[in-house]
Design a protein around this nucleic acid. Structure first.
Lengths: 335, 335
DNA sequence: TTGTACGCGTTATCAG
DNA sequence: CTGATAACGCGTACAA
């Protein structure tokens, strides 16, 4: 087939053991011999078999990203952070789309992953999700990104506080009819968006503003969904004068619906999103910026550490968010 | 360590060979025995070792995506298409960020990939790129997405024709001072964007409009870069009255710069992008829509086929693009 | 410091 | 249709 350690050993005039050690830079090998072996290996265009190494050591030298939402902007950002850290190592990155609660074609088997990777980065999957439970049952290093769970390492933001800030910002402008564009199921404690919903309610309560369920519409965390939600809100007998969308992408959709309906964001209706999307700036959308790239980077670093030294203290990091005020919430409400 | 075929074999009262065959659904095994073996395996919570299987068969059961631009919207879409197809198989997906010509920290070794995957999906890497050459040298199944190269399978669009259409659309509106926001190096034949540049020039020539190099600014294919480019164009003594941006993301940046400068897209300056970005709609940006998800899906399907039957005819698919006219180019130019 | 020899878990071959 | 056994390529005790 192709050239193996044995070939290199023969050509170099040493044993496979020495070759193996030399190639991996062990200190216990004579510098001269190492140089020679490396030269010979290069000459033979030798490249090791990760499968064989994995079989022998039990380490796969790779980690998996588990996430249901490959198509969200936030994923793309977190992935950038992950990649930035990972490319300084020799670890490989596997990508598995798993954990979408509304998936008609549910995951076949997580068992398969067992011997496939050394650790898991679970992104945007709520604690309590069956898929997450399956992963945890594997009893391998896991770090959550964007969610939290007892006894599992995680890197996240304080969603509840952030949503409180976003909603509070609207209330500060004098709005009392505050609408919400959520994802799919805001009241399910297992849903990732639940915390943001609680923050929304917190803020209303703190300001003594009543919550009106009919002013809350689902936007599925997509642009189109956000548009549909806003259409729904606009059709209300008493539409909200301010709206908090749980993601910038939904807010963008809402803006489209508003434009079509002839309603100006920041003028007729205040609108704030969530994420700190690159284009929020272009669309002059107020938002809650979260450090997505950092989330990814810290999480992968933690996984690497966990793999290196098992039984390590579980890391729980919470990163800060920032309210970014732009035109879409610039105008105060006056009754 | 964990339960192996041998354990299953012992528990089931059959040989490892039979167990292996039964578990993989070989027709040559007694249905009753198969059922029994499967039951036992499940009972033992058996899960196979891909590393061992790979070592034995030489097939890794996984493919790699190679791309420099993890953070672009177009990547996210193509990835969605890839995943849609891949999840109907038992193949795993490895992700490698490689091939960025402006990478200060160049790739360590592609050799490493040799025994890691069964095939490569090379996205958005120009033919002639050193990284692509390295991959091709491996002599394994490769499918290009978004670029073309002699003797390599590819799924792409006709960039040149599409750019011609975009530019032609501007010219049709009566514009003669047409600007361009390109990526990094439009004139390098090895750059991916070169074809779009050629299409731009084609259209100008066909309309007998002179090309003015100073009306062409680099936007690095990012939002911020697009903004900078537009600022540059606006500062010209004779700014263009219409601009073609080689990506929607750059066009978005351009729109931001225009808004800050008090110039209205589609009114003061016509603007058209490229990609069919989800948010082009929201921003009322005309664009060239390309079927990104389909590109990804077809490419991965082709790789799977190539792996299944080596030495197959090289596929060369070109998918159609579509001009989408919106507000940003709706107003005709009048001198 | 270097070499020998075995094991990792699975699949493929070949004989029965 | 089933079983015994030899690879697959590398890492690593253990011995020298």
């Amino acid at each position: 087939m192709s050239v193996t350690v044995r070939d290199v050993a023969r050509a170099a005039g040493f044993s496979t053991a020495t070759v193996s050690r030399a190639l991996r830079g062990f200190p216990s090998v004579d510098p001269l011999i190492r140089a020679h072996v490396i030269a010979v290996a290069r000459g033979l265009d030798y490249v090791g078999s990760p499968a064989a190494a994995a079989l022998s050591t039990g380490r796969m030298n790779s980690i998996a990203i588990i996430t249901p939402y490959v198509a969200r902007w936030s994923f793309e950002r977190m992935l950038s952070g992950v990649d930035r850290v990972l490319r300084t190592t020799d670890m490989d990155l596997l990508l598995y789309r798993l954990g979408d609660p509304s998936d008609p074609h549910p995951a076949p088997a997580h068992r398969r992953l067992r011997h496939r990777v050394d650790g898991f980065l679970v992104m945007s999957i709520a604690a309590g999700s069956p898929d997450l439970e399956e992963i945890l049952r594997l009893n391998m290093p896991v770090t959550l990104v964007g969610s939290t769970r007892e006894d599992v390492a995680s890197v996240s933001i304080d969603d509840r506080a952030a949503a409180r800030v976003a909603t509070g910002h609207l209330l500060d402008q004098g709005h009392t009819k505050v609408g919400l564009i959520y994802g799919r199921e805001r009241t399910n404690p297992l849903a990732l968006e639940h915390q943001r919903y609680l923050g929304f309610v917190d803020a209303l309560r703190a300001a003594d503003v009543a919550e009106h369920q009919e002013r809350e519409a689902p936007g599925m965390f997509t642009v189109d969904g956000g548009a549909a939600a806003m259409r729904e809100l606009l059709a209300l007998p008493e539409p909200p004068t301010a709206v908090f969308a749980m993601s910038d992408e939904m807010a963008f959709g809402a803006m489209r619906a508003m434009r079509i309906a002839g309603v100006r964001p920041g003028h007729d209706i205040a609108l704030i999103g969530f994420d700190g999307h690159e284009l929020a700036d272009v669309l002059d959308l107020s938002t809650i910026a979260q450090p997505l790239e950092e989330l990814g980077a810290l999480a992968v670093q933690n996984i690497l550490d966990d793999i290196a030294q098992p039984g390590r203290q579980r890391l729980k990091t919470v990163l800060p968010t920032e309210l970014v005020v732009r035109g879409s919430t610039s105008i105060r409400h006056q009754d």
